[in-house]
Simulated scan of single mutants.
Amino acid sequence: MKNKLTYLLTTIAFLAISSVAMAQDGKSPYAGTSHNYSVTPDADATNKTYLWSVSGGGTINGAADGTSVTIDWGTTLGTYTVTFTEKDESTSCSTIRELEVEVISNTFYLNMFSDASACHDSTGLILASGASGPTTLYFTVNLNKDNAWSIDTWEYDFSVSVDGSDYSLSSVKVDDGAELGTGGSYSDISVTGTESTSEIAVVIDGPVTAGTNVTVTISNGEAIKGVVVTPDNGSGDKTQILTLNPLPNTTDITTD
Protein backbone atom coordinates (compact mmCIF):
# COMPACT_ATOMS: atom_id res chain seq x y z
CA MET A 1 0.00 0.00 0.00
CA LYS A 2 2.83 2.35 0.90
CA ASN A 3 4.56 1.70 -2.44
CA LYS A 4 1.31 2.36 -4.33
CA LEU A 5 0.77 5.61 -2.42
CA THR A 6 4.35 6.72 -3.12
CA TYR A 7 3.90 5.93 -6.82
CA LEU A 8 0.59 7.83 -6.89
CA LEU A 9 2.08 10.91 -5.24
CA THR A 10 5.09 10.80 -7.55
CA THR A 11 2.81 10.55 -10.58
CA ILE A 12 0.70 13.48 -9.41
CA ALA A 13 3.81 15.57 -8.79
CA PHE A 14 5.17 14.68 -12.24
CA LEU A 15 1.91 15.60 -13.92
CA ALA A 16 1.79 18.91 -12.03
CA ILE A 17 5.34 19.74 -13.10
CA SER A 18 4.60 18.68 -16.67
CA SER A 19 1.50 20.86 -16.88
CA VAL A 20 3.49 23.89 -15.73
CA ALA A 21 6.36 23.13 -18.10
CA MET A 22 3.90 22.85 -21.01
CA ALA A 23 2.36 26.25 -20.27
CA GLN A 24 2.33 28.86 -23.02
CA ASP A 25 2.18 26.88 -26.22
CA GLY A 26 -0.46 26.48 -28.89
CA LYS A 27 -2.53 24.14 -26.71
CA SER A 28 -2.24 26.36 -23.63
CA PRO A 29 -1.73 29.89 -24.99
CA TYR A 30 -1.42 32.91 -22.77
CA ALA A 31 -4.24 35.41 -23.14
CA GLY A 32 -3.35 38.01 -25.74
CA THR A 33 -0.94 35.84 -27.77
CA SER A 34 -1.03 34.56 -31.33
CA HIS A 35 -0.24 30.98 -32.32
CA ASN A 36 0.04 29.05 -35.57
CA TYR A 37 -1.85 25.81 -36.25
CA SER A 38 -1.33 23.50 -39.23
CA VAL A 39 -2.16 20.12 -40.72
CA THR A 40 -0.74 17.91 -43.45
CA PRO A 41 -3.63 17.41 -45.87
CA ASP A 42 -4.38 14.49 -48.16
CA ALA A 43 -1.52 13.97 -50.62
CA ASP A 44 -3.97 14.22 -53.53
CA ALA A 45 -5.07 17.85 -53.47
CA THR A 46 -7.46 17.44 -56.43
CA ASN A 47 -10.90 18.94 -55.68
CA LYS A 48 -9.93 19.40 -52.01
CA THR A 49 -10.99 22.45 -49.98
CA TYR A 50 -9.87 23.45 -46.51
CA LEU A 51 -11.57 25.41 -43.75
CA TRP A 52 -10.53 26.45 -40.24
CA SER A 53 -12.80 27.66 -37.44
CA VAL A 54 -12.54 28.43 -33.74
CA SER A 55 -15.37 28.04 -31.24
CA GLY A 56 -14.53 31.23 -29.33
CA GLY A 57 -11.87 33.01 -27.30
CA GLY A 58 -9.91 34.10 -30.33
CA THR A 59 -10.08 35.18 -33.94
CA ILE A 60 -8.47 33.84 -37.10
CA ASN A 61 -5.89 36.28 -38.43
CA GLY A 62 -6.00 36.17 -42.22
CA ALA A 63 -7.28 33.47 -44.53
CA ALA A 64 -9.04 30.43 -43.04
CA ASP A 65 -8.93 28.25 -46.17
CA GLY A 66 -5.32 27.00 -46.16
CA THR A 67 -3.44 24.19 -44.49
CA SER A 68 -2.26 26.50 -41.70
CA VAL A 69 -3.78 29.36 -39.77
CA THR A 70 -2.85 32.00 -37.19
CA ILE A 71 -5.23 32.55 -34.28
CA ASP A 72 -5.09 35.67 -32.12
CA TRP A 73 -6.25 34.66 -28.66
CA GLY A 74 -8.11 37.28 -26.68
CA THR A 75 -8.25 38.04 -22.96
CA THR A 76 -11.16 35.73 -22.08
CA LEU A 77 -9.83 32.65 -20.30
CA GLY A 78 -11.38 29.29 -21.01
CA THR A 79 -11.36 26.16 -23.14
CA TYR A 80 -12.09 26.45 -26.86
CA THR A 81 -11.95 24.23 -29.93
CA VAL A 82 -9.95 24.75 -33.11
CA THR A 83 -11.49 22.84 -36.02
CA PHE A 84 -10.07 21.98 -39.45
CA THR A 85 -12.19 20.48 -42.22
CA GLU A 86 -10.84 18.98 -45.46
CA LYS A 87 -13.53 18.27 -48.02
CA ASP A 88 -13.43 16.46 -51.34
CA GLU A 89 -15.78 18.60 -53.43
CA SER A 90 -16.18 15.86 -56.05
CA THR A 91 -17.66 13.40 -53.55
CA SER A 92 -18.81 15.72 -50.71
CA CYS A 93 -16.82 13.51 -48.32
CA SER A 94 -14.92 15.32 -45.58
CA THR A 95 -12.52 14.77 -42.70
CA ILE A 96 -12.66 16.89 -39.56
CA ARG A 97 -9.84 17.38 -37.07
CA GLU A 98 -10.23 19.18 -33.73
CA LEU A 99 -7.82 20.52 -31.12
CA GLU A 100 -8.92 21.58 -27.66
CA VAL A 101 -7.19 24.79 -26.56
CA GLU A 102 -7.15 26.29 -23.06
CA VAL A 103 -6.45 30.03 -22.92
CA ILE A 104 -4.62 30.61 -19.65
CA SER A 105 -3.74 33.63 -17.55
CA ASN A 106 -0.74 35.63 -18.78
CA THR A 107 2.04 35.66 -16.15
CA PHE A 108 4.37 38.09 -17.94
CA TYR A 109 4.86 41.73 -16.95
CA LEU A 110 7.59 44.30 -16.43
CA ASN A 111 7.85 46.75 -13.56
CA MET A 112 10.23 49.41 -12.27
CA PHE A 113 12.11 49.57 -8.97
CA SER A 114 10.67 51.76 -6.22
CA ASP A 115 11.15 55.52 -6.19
CA ALA A 116 14.32 56.66 -4.41
CA SER A 117 16.70 59.58 -3.99
CA ALA A 118 20.42 60.14 -4.49
CA CYS A 119 23.13 62.77 -3.99
CA HIS A 120 24.93 64.41 -6.86
CA ASP A 121 28.02 62.45 -7.99
CA SER A 122 30.15 65.37 -6.77
CA THR A 123 29.10 64.86 -3.15
CA GLY A 124 32.04 64.96 -0.75
CA LEU A 125 34.39 66.60 -3.26
CA ILE A 126 36.12 69.97 -3.06
CA LEU A 127 34.25 72.14 -5.54
CA ALA A 128 34.34 75.69 -6.72
CA SER A 129 31.43 77.86 -5.70
CA GLY A 130 28.62 77.59 -8.25
CA ALA A 131 30.06 74.39 -9.75
CA SER A 132 28.13 72.38 -12.31
CA GLY A 133 28.68 68.90 -13.59
CA PRO A 134 27.20 65.56 -14.66
CA THR A 135 25.64 62.98 -12.39
CA THR A 136 24.32 59.52 -13.22
CA LEU A 137 21.04 58.04 -12.01
CA TYR A 138 20.34 54.32 -12.42
CA PHE A 139 16.86 52.92 -13.10
CA THR A 140 16.00 49.19 -13.04
CA VAL A 141 13.40 47.31 -15.06
CA ASN A 142 12.31 43.96 -13.61
CA LEU A 143 11.18 40.91 -15.59
CA ASN A 144 8.34 38.96 -13.95
CA LYS A 145 7.05 35.65 -15.35
CA ASP A 146 6.33 32.03 -14.55
CA ASN A 147 9.72 30.48 -13.73
CA ALA A 148 8.89 27.38 -15.79
CA TRP A 149 8.33 29.46 -18.91
CA SER A 150 11.48 30.12 -20.94
CA ILE A 151 11.70 33.03 -23.39
CA ASP A 152 14.30 34.06 -25.95
CA THR A 153 14.18 37.81 -25.37
CA TRP A 154 12.06 40.51 -23.78
CA GLU A 155 11.53 44.02 -25.05
CA TYR A 156 10.24 47.36 -23.87
CA ASP A 157 10.03 51.06 -24.73
CA PHE A 158 10.79 53.82 -22.26
CA SER A 159 10.78 57.58 -21.86
CA VAL A 160 12.90 59.92 -19.70
CA SER A 161 11.80 63.29 -18.35
CA VAL A 162 13.78 65.78 -16.25
CA ASP A 163 11.89 68.31 -14.13
CA GLY A 164 12.79 72.00 -14.28
CA SER A 165 15.33 73.84 -16.40
CA ASP A 166 18.44 73.68 -14.19
CA TYR A 167 19.38 70.23 -15.47
CA SER A 168 19.53 68.85 -19.00
CA LEU A 169 19.61 65.29 -20.29
CA SER A 170 23.19 64.46 -21.26
CA SER A 171 23.31 60.70 -21.93
CA VAL A 172 21.16 57.56 -21.85
CA LYS A 173 22.42 53.98 -21.98
CA VAL A 174 20.80 50.59 -21.35
CA ASP A 175 22.80 47.73 -19.80
CA ASP A 176 26.03 49.61 -20.48
CA GLY A 177 25.39 49.53 -24.21
CA ALA A 178 25.61 52.20 -26.86
CA GLU A 179 24.61 55.81 -26.27
CA LEU A 180 20.93 56.20 -27.20
CA GLY A 181 20.78 59.97 -27.63
CA THR A 182 19.00 62.68 -25.67
CA GLY A 183 15.59 62.66 -27.33
CA GLY A 184 13.92 61.31 -24.20
CA SER A 185 11.96 58.56 -25.99
CA TYR A 186 13.42 55.12 -26.74
CA SER A 187 11.91 52.07 -28.46
CA ASP A 188 12.50 48.35 -28.96
CA ILE A 189 14.98 47.80 -26.14
CA SER A 190 15.83 44.08 -26.35
CA VAL A 191 17.13 42.00 -23.43
CA THR A 192 18.14 38.33 -23.48
CA GLY A 193 15.60 36.04 -21.85
CA THR A 194 18.07 34.76 -19.25
CA GLU A 195 18.38 38.23 -17.70
CA SER A 196 15.80 39.16 -15.06
CA THR A 197 16.60 42.89 -14.94
CA SER A 198 17.66 45.68 -17.26
CA GLU A 199 19.48 48.82 -16.09
CA ILE A 200 18.94 52.27 -17.58
CA ALA A 201 21.71 54.79 -16.86
CA VAL A 202 20.62 58.41 -17.23
CA VAL A 203 23.23 61.18 -17.07
CA ILE A 204 21.99 64.69 -16.39
CA ASP A 205 24.08 67.86 -16.21
CA GLY A 206 23.57 70.96 -14.10
CA PRO A 207 24.48 72.91 -10.95
CA VAL A 208 25.46 70.72 -8.02
CA THR A 209 23.46 72.85 -5.58
CA ALA A 210 20.20 72.35 -7.47
CA GLY A 211 18.01 69.26 -7.20
CA THR A 212 15.55 67.73 -9.63
CA ASN A 213 13.31 64.74 -10.27
CA VAL A 214 14.06 62.37 -13.14
CA THR A 215 11.27 60.04 -14.26
CA VAL A 216 11.57 56.89 -16.36
CA THR A 217 8.39 55.26 -17.65
CA ILE A 218 8.33 51.90 -19.45
CA SER A 219 5.70 50.68 -21.91
CA ASN A 220 4.94 48.08 -24.60
CA GLY A 221 6.55 45.16 -22.78
CA GLU A 222 6.79 41.97 -24.85
CA ALA A 223 8.18 38.49 -24.20
CA ILE A 224 9.33 36.60 -27.30
CA LYS A 225 9.70 32.85 -27.74
CA GLY A 226 10.37 31.87 -31.33
CA VAL A 227 7.61 33.53 -33.36
CA VAL A 228 5.27 33.84 -30.36
CA VAL A 229 5.00 37.30 -28.82
CA THR A 230 3.39 37.67 -25.39
CA PRO A 231 2.32 41.19 -24.38
CA ASP A 232 2.73 42.61 -20.89
CA ASN A 233 -0.38 41.74 -18.86
CA GLY A 234 -0.60 45.27 -17.40
CA SER A 235 0.46 44.42 -13.85
CA GLY A 236 3.24 46.21 -11.99
CA ASP A 237 4.38 49.80 -11.55
CA LYS A 238 5.67 51.14 -14.87
CA THR A 239 7.22 54.33 -13.50
CA GLN A 240 10.25 55.05 -11.34
CA ILE A 241 11.15 58.52 -10.07
CA LEU A 242 14.63 59.25 -8.75
CA THR A 243 15.10 62.51 -6.87
CA LEU A 244 18.52 64.14 -7.18
CA ASN A 245 19.20 65.93 -3.91
CA PRO A 246 21.16 69.21 -4.11
CA LEU A 247 24.52 69.57 -2.36
CA PRO A 248 24.69 72.24 0.37
CA ASN A 249 25.21 75.68 -1.17
CA THR A 250 28.20 76.56 1.01
CA THR A 251 30.12 79.76 0.30
CA ASP A 252 33.88 79.92 -0.12
CA ILE A 253 35.88 80.20 3.09
CA THR A 254 36.62 83.79 4.06
CA THR A 255 38.97 85.16 6.66
CA ASP A 256 39.40 88.42 8.63
Results as ranks from 00 to 15, higher is better:
1 M>L: 11
7 Y>S: 15
12 I>A: 14
14 F>P: 08
16 A>E: 12
19 S>R: 12
21 A>L: 14
22 M>D: 14
23 A>H: 14
24 Q>W: 13
24 Q>C: 13
27 K>D: 12
28 S>F: 13
28 S>Q: 12
29 P>R: 01
35 H>F: 13
37 Y>S: 03
42 D>C: 07
43 A>K: 09
44 D>M: 04
47 N>T: 05
53 S>E: 14
55 S>C: 04
56 G>P: 05
56 G>Y: 03
56 G>W: 03
57 G>F: 08
58 G>F: 07
59 T>S: 15
68 S>R: 09
70 T>F: 12
72 D>E: 11
74 G>S: 05
75 T>F: 12
79 T>P: 00
80 Y>H: 07
94 S>N: 08
95 T>N: 12
96 I>K: 10
101 V>M: 06
101 V>A: 05
104 I>Y: 05
108 F>M: 14
108 F>A: 13
112 M>N: 05
112 M>G: 07
113 F>K: 15
115 D>K: 02
119 C>Q: 10
119 C>V: 02
120 H>M: 01
125 L>A: 15
126 I>V: 15
129 S>Y: 15
132 S>H: 01
135 T>H: 01
135 T>E: 03
136 T>V: 06
141 V>R: 11
143 L>Y: 12
148 A>R: 09
148 A>Q: 11
148 A>G: 15
149 W>S: 09
150 S>Q: 13
150 S>Y: 11
151 I>G: 08
152 D>L: 08
154 W>V: 02
155 E>A: 11
157 D>F: 06
158 F>Y: 12
163 D>L: 03
164 G>C: 00
167 Y>K: 00
167 Y>C: 03
168 S>V: 10
174 V>H: 07
175 D>V: 00
175 D>F: 02
177 G>T: 08
178 A>K: 03
181 G>C: 05
183 G>Y: 08
186 Y>H: 07
187 S>W: 04
188 D>V: 05
188 D>R: 13
189 I>H: 02
191 V>F: 09
192 T>Y: 14
192 T>F: 14
200 I>G: 06
201 A>T: 07
201 A>V: 04
201 A>Y: 00
202 V>W: 09
202 V>P: 05
205 D>Q: 04
207 P>A: 01
209 T>K: 00
213 N>S: 14
218 I>H: 02
219 S>C: 02
220 N>E: 14
220 N>W: 10
221 G>W: 01
226 G>W: 02
228 V>F: 06
231 P>Q: 13
235 S>C: 06
236 G>I: 00
236 G>Y: 02
238 K>G: 11
238 K>E: 15
241 I>V: 13
242 L>E: 14
243 T>P: 12
252 D>L: 11
255 T>Y: 13
